[in-house]
Design a protein around this nucleic acid. Structure first.
Length: 864
RNA sequence: GCCGGGAUGGCGGAAUUGGUAGACGCAACGGACUUAAAAUCCGUUGGCCGCUAGGCCGUGCGGGUUCGAGUCCCGCUCCCGGUACCA
C-alpha cells in the first residue's frame, strides 16, 4: 500500500509555482474587483533558521490568501525581511564577518525554508529592510518627521549598557537589564534623537476604537499610553519668595488630606527649598539615588525611603503648612515630578507617612466594614470643607472648578507614554540622514538619499555614545549639500523598529524609485485586511507602526489613519508535554512535587534533580498526576517553551522531510485554535499524514467516474463546503480540517467517487494542503493550477433533510431519540415520542405539565 | 496588586444564538492481513452499576436563573500572559 509520494510532488509543485509565477500579483490589477491584503509579520532572519512558531501564522495567512484568490479577490500576500538588528552585528564582532554577509546567508536560508512550506507569496515583491533601495524611504520618512517637528534632539537620561556599548530604549530594558543578553544597564544623559510620539497619544488611543484587534492588545496599548485625567495644582512654598511647586494629581478631591509633599530627587526646586539644617542630608540622599542603578531602585522598591528638606508649603485649600520631602518613589519623568501626598487615600503615601510619622487625614468615608489602611474606594467626602458629602466624581468637578476660578490650578490630562528614543549607537541600522556644522543640524536633501552605510572593518562599539560609525573617518567627514560647508555626519543609526514601521506600504509598490508608494495603488490596497503575528509585538511594533502611519496620513502620503483593520496573534507553540518527577540525588529518594520549590526540598533544603518520566509510568488521580510505581509521588505536568537549553526544540525542516510540507501545515493548523498557546506533539503529525495518505488513496485507488452523484453524497459535500467556508472565514482552521477528515472518513465507504465530488473536495482541501491538491487536480484531468479555480459554492438545498433524529427528554433528561419527518407538527412529534417505551417508562402515569418542542432541536416533556 | 485570557476524557481539542457533552485527531486495547515487523483495514475506549434493553454520575469549586446550563448570573480556587511606586 503506497504512501503518497509527497517528496516528488511537493518539489514538483513548488517548482511549478515558482517558474509560472502563479502567485504574482500584477502591478496593474483590475481594480473593479475587490482586494484582500493579507500580511504576515515579516521575520528577523536569525542564524537559527525558521522555528515551528513561524509557520503557524504563515500557514494561516496562506490559507486565507489561497481561499480569497479562489473567491475572486485580488490578493496581496507578500513577505520580506526585517534584517537590521543587533544579532548580526554581534556575530560580526565575534567573527569579523560583515553583517551584510551574515544577513544575506540567513535570508537565503529563510527564503528556502518558507518556499519549502509551499507558501503562496508573491516573491517578486520581496523586500529587505537593509537594502539601500528600501531604507532610502525609511530615511525619507525620518525627514518628514523632522520637517514636521516630530523628530528632535534632546539630552535625555537614557539606558546605557556598558556590555553592549550602546544605549537601549526603555522597551529594550527589563528590570534594569538588557532584553538581549541580560546585561546590567544604567542611566546617562546623552544627546539623542527623539520622536514626538506623545503628540499623537490621544489619536493613538482613539484610533483603537475603530480596529478589529484582540481585546487584550488594545488594552495593552491603552495601558501603555496610560491616559489619566486630573489637575495640576500650585502649592506656594512658605518663606520669602514666590516660588511654587506644581503637582499633578488624579485625585484633586482629596487635597484637603494633603498633609505633606514629595519631590523627585531630581526636581529642580529641591536645592532651593532645602534648609541649611537639612542640606547635608538632602544632598547625600540625592547622590545615593543618582548612583543607585535602576536595578537597585526596583529591587528596593518595597521599602520607601526619603528625607525631609526642611521646607514647608501651603496647602491652598486647608491653608495648613505641610512639610516638603524628597523621595525616589516619586518619578521625575511623570507628571511634574512632584506630588501632594494624601496618605489617607493612597497606599504609597500611607506607607511613607507611617514610616516617617507624618500626619494622616482621611477625606473619604470608608464603609463600616473597611479594615485596610489607605482607602482608595468611593464614598462621601469628609474633613473637606465644602466638598463634604460629595462622592469622588462630583467632588473632583467641584474642586477643579474652584481651583480654576481661584487661579490655583487647572484641569489636566496626562499620559504615561514617553517620546520615542530613536538613536542607537550601532553600525547595522539605517543611517540618520542629517549632517552637523558644529551644533547646527541640517537634513539631507531628498536627492542625497539613500545615505548608505560605509564599509567597515571593525564593528566594535566605540564604548562611548559615539557608535561604530565614528570610526569611518572618510564617511564621517562630508560636505553639507545645502550650504557647501564642511560638515559631520550623524554617527547614530535608527532602531530596529524603524524598518518595520512601514514595510507593508512598500510591498504595494516595491520597485518604485520615485515615490515611497504610488498613491493610486496605496488607495486601492490599504488598509491591510488581515495581519497575523506574535503577541510579543502587541505594544511596540504595533504602536510605532500606527504612529508613523498617522504621520504619513497627515502628510497626505497614505489614505487611511489606521494601517491594520484586523489583527490576530497566533498562540505560541510549546514543546511536548513533559511529566517531571523530583529526586534527591544523594539519597535517590523521590520527592513529591508539592514539597518542591525552586528545585529544592522545602523540608530538608536539599537540591533535587528533575527527572523526565515517560507517559507510561504516569497515573492520574483526581486532577493530579502520580508516579505509577510509587503513587504517593506527585509529578509536575507542563509543556515548556521550546529552548535550546531544555532540548525540546522541534526543527521544522526535519518534520517536513519526514512527513512533507502538507502534513506539517495541516498539523500546525489542526493543533487547536490559532490564538491559543498549545503544546507540540510529533505523533499528531502522523495523524495528518495518515489523513493525506487516505485522501491520496481515496482518489487514486478507486474509480473516479463521471457519474451522477447521489443525494447523500451531495449532502455530505455541501455540508463540508458549508463548514470549511465559514471556518476559514472565522480562522477556525482546526475545525475546518476536522470537517475535511469527516468527509474522507465517510467517502472512504463509497465504492466509487463521482468526478464532480472529487473535484470539489480537492478544491476545499487546497488552501490547507496545496501540493497534494494540485497533484490530484491534475490527476482528475486538469492542465492548469487550481489556484484561481472558483471556490465551491454552497447549495443550501442539499443541506435539507427529510428525516431527522430528534432527541426526546423527560424532565430535561435524554430518554430516547426518535426519527421523524422534518415538517411534522408538535402534536405529531409528541404522539410519536409517546410510543417509545423508555419515554413511557419515565412519564409513567404522571400528569404532563408542559411539552417544549424546538423544531429540529429537541422535545422535552415535563411531568409532575 | 492591577489588566487580559483560560480551566471539558490518558493527551490536543469540538459543541455559531442556552437544546443529544466529548466531533476530529493522538495514545491505548482487541481483531483482520502478514513468516514477522511496518503500513493498512475493522472494532472498543469519560467514570461507575448491569455488562443485553438500560440506569446513575460527569465540563475547576460553591450557589442561583431555566422545562433544559460547558454556555447566562453571583461568589470563590487555580493556571497562563502582560504590567507595576504613573500620583
Amino acid at each position: 500500500m503506497a504512501k503518497y509520494p509527497f517528496r516528488e510532488l511537493e518539489n514538483k509543485w513548488q517548482a511549478y509555482w515558482q517558474s509560472n509565477k502563479t502567485f504574482k500579483t500584477p502591478t496593474k490589477v483590475d481594480t473593479t474587483k475587490p482586494k484582500y491584503y493579507v500580511l504576515d509579520m515579516f521575520p528577523y532572519p536569525s542564524g537559527a533558521g525558521l522555528h515551528v512558531g513561524h509557520p503557524e501564522g504563515y500557514t494561516a495567512t496562506d490559507i486565507v490568501a489561497r481561499y480569497k484568490r479562489m473567491c475572486g479577490y485580488n490578493v496581496l500576500h507578500p513577505i520580506g525581511w526585517d534584517a537590521f538588528g543587533l544579532p548580526a552585528e554581534q556575530y560580526a564582532l565575534r567573527t569579523g564577518t560583515h553583517p551584510r554577509i551574515t544577513t544575506e546567508a540567513n535570508i537565503n536560508r529563510f527564503r528556502k525554508q518558507l518556499q519549502s512550506l509551499g507558501l503562496s507569496y508573491d516573491w517578486d515583491r520581496e523586500i529587505d529592510t537593509t537594502d539601500p533601495e528600501y531604507y532610502k524611504w525609511t530615511q525619507w520618512i525620518f525627514l518628514q518627521l523632522l520637517e514636521r517637528g516630530l523628530a528632535y534632539e534632546a539630552k535625555v537620561p537614557v539606558w546605557w549598557c556598558e556590555a553592549l556599548g550602546t544605549t537601549l530604549s526603555n522597551e529594550e530594558v527589563v528590570d534594569g537589564k538588557s532584553d538581549i543578553g541580560g546585561h546590567p544597564c544604567e542611566r546617562r544623559m546623552l544627546r539623542q534623537w527623539v520622536l514626538r510620539i506623545t503628540e499623537y497619544a490621544e489619536r493613538l488611543l482613539k484610533g483603537l476604537e475603530h480596529t478589529d484587534w484582540p481585546q487584550s492588545t488594545k488594552e495593552m496599548q491603552r495601558n501603555w499610553i496610560g491616559r489619566s485625567e486630573g489637575a495640576e495644582i500650585d502649592f506656594k512654598v512658605q518663606g520669602g519668595d514666590s516660588s511654587v511647586i506644581r503637582v499633578y494629581t488624579t485625585r484633586p478631591d482629596t487635597m484637603f488630606g494633603a498633609t505633606y509633599m514629595v519631590l523627585a530627587p531630581e526636581h529642580p526646586l529641591v536645592d532651593h527649598i532645602s534648609t541649611k539644617a537639612q542640606r547635608n542630608e538632602v544632598s547625600h540622599y540625592i547622590e545615593l539615588a543618582s548612583r543607585k542603578s535602576d536595578i537597585e531602585r526596583t529591587e528596593l522598591q518595597k521599602e520607601k525611603t526619603g528625607v525631609f528638606t526642611g521646607g514647608y508649603a501651603l496647602n491652598p485649600v486647608s491653608q495648613e503648612a505641610i512639610p516638603i520631602w524628597i523621595a525616589d518613589y516619586v518619578l521625575s519623568s511623570y507628571g511634574t515630578g512632584a506630588i501632594m501626598a494624601v496618605p489617607g487615600e493612597d497606599e504609597r503615601d500611607w506607607a511613607f507617612a507611617a514610616k516617617y510619622d507624618l500626619p494622616i487625614v482621611r477625606t473619604v468615608q470608608p464603609p463600616s466594614d473597611f479594615t485596610g489602611l489607605a482607602y482608595t474606594g468611593d464614598g462621601p467626602a469628609i474633613n473637606s470643607a465644602f466638598l463634604n458629602g460629595l462622592y469622588i466624581q462630583e467632588a473632583k468637578e467641584r474642586i477643579i472648578d474652584y481651583l480654576e476660578s481661584e487661579g490655583l490650578g487647572t484641569r489636566k490630562v496626562n499620559y504615561k507614554l514617553r517620546d520615542w528614543l530613536f538613536s542607537r549607537q550601532r553600525y547595522w541600522g539605517e543611517p540618520i540622514p542629517v549632517v552637523f556644522e558644529g551644533d547646527q543640524v541640517s537634513s539631507l536633501p531628498e536627492n542625497a538619499l539613500p545615505l548608505t552605510l560605509p564599509e567597515l572593518e571593525e564593528f566594535k562599539p566605540s564604548g562611548t555614545p559615539e557608535g561604530p560609525l565614528a570610526l569611518a573617518q572618510n564617511w564621517l567627514q562630508t560636505i553639507n549639500p545645502s550650504s557647501g560647508n564642511i560638515a559631520k555626519r550623524e554617527t547614530n543609526t535608527m532602531p530596529q523598529w524603524a524598518g518595520s514601521c512601514w514595510y507593508f506600504l512598500r510591498y504595494i509598490d516595491p520597485k518604485n524609485s520615485m515615490q515611497i508608494v504610488d498613491p493610486k495603488l496605496e488607495k486601492y490596497w490599504m488598509p491591510v485586511d488581515l495581519y497575523i503575528g506574535g503577541a510579543e509585538h502587541a505594544v511596540l511594533h504595533l504602536l510605532y507602526a500606527r504612529f508613523w502611519h498617522m504621520v504619513l496620513y497627515d502628510a497626505g502620503v497614505v489614505s487611511t489613519p489606521e494601517p491594520f483593520s484586523k489583527l490576530v496573534h497566533q498562540g505560541m507553540i510549546l514543546g511536548e508535554l513533559e511529566y517531571t518527577a523530583w529526586k534527591n540525588i544523594e539519597s535517590g529518594q523521590w520527592v513529591t512535587s508539592p514539597q518542591v520549590s525552586g528545585g529544592k526540598d522545602v523540608h530538608t533544603g536539599a537540591h533535587l534533580e528533575a527527572v523526565r518520566i515517560d507517559e507510561e509510568r504516569v497515573t492520574k488521580d483526581g486532577d493530579k498526576f502520580f508516579l505509577k510505581e510509587k503513587p504517593q509521588i506527585q509529578l509536575d505536568v507542563r509543556a515548556h517553551k521550546m529552548s535550546k537549553s531544555r532540548g525540546n526544540v522541534i526543527n521544522p525542516d526535519e518534520i517536513i522531510s519526514q512527513f512533507g510540507a502538507d502534513a506539517f501545515r495541516l498539523y500546525e493548523m489542526f493543533m487547536g485554535p490559532l490564538e491559543q498557546v498549545k503544546p507540540w506533539n510529533t505523533r499528531g503529525v502522523h495523524g495528518t499524514f495518515r489523513f493525506l495518505t487516505r485522501v491520496w488513496r481515496l482518489i487514486t485507488e478507486r474509480p473516479v467516474h463521471d457519474i451522477k452523484p447521489e443525494r447523500e453524497q451531495l449532502r455530505l459535500l455541501h455540508q463540508t463546503i458549508d463548514r470549511v467556508t465559514s471556518d476559514i472565514e472565522g480562522l477556525r482552521m482546526n475545525t475546518a480540517i476536522a470537517a475535511l477528515m469527516e468527509f474522507v472518513n465517510a467517502a472512504f465507504k463509497w465504492k466509487q467517487i463521482p468526478q464532480e465530488i472529487a473535484e470539489y473536495f480537492v478544491l476545499l482541501l487546497s488552501p490547507f494542503a496545496p501540493h497534494i491538491s494540485e497533484e490530484l487536480w491534475q490527476y482528475l484531468g486538469h492542465q492548469e493550477s487550481l489556484a484561481y479555480e472558483s471556490w465551491p459554492e454552497l447549495d443550501k438545498q442539499y443541506l435539507t433533510e427529510d428525516m431527522i433524529d430528534l432527541p426526546v427528554q423527560v424532565n430535561g433528561k435524554l430518554r430516547a431519540t426518535i426519527r421523524i419527518p422534518v415538517e411534522i407538527d408538535k402534536q405529531q412529534v409528541v404522539e410519536r415520542a409517546m410510543l417509545e417505551t423508555n419515554v413511557l417508562k419515565f412519564v409513567a402515569n404522571k400528569p404532563v405539565n408542559k411539552e417544549i418542542y424546538v423544531p429540529g432541536r429537541i422535545l422535552n416533556i415535563v411531568v409532575g
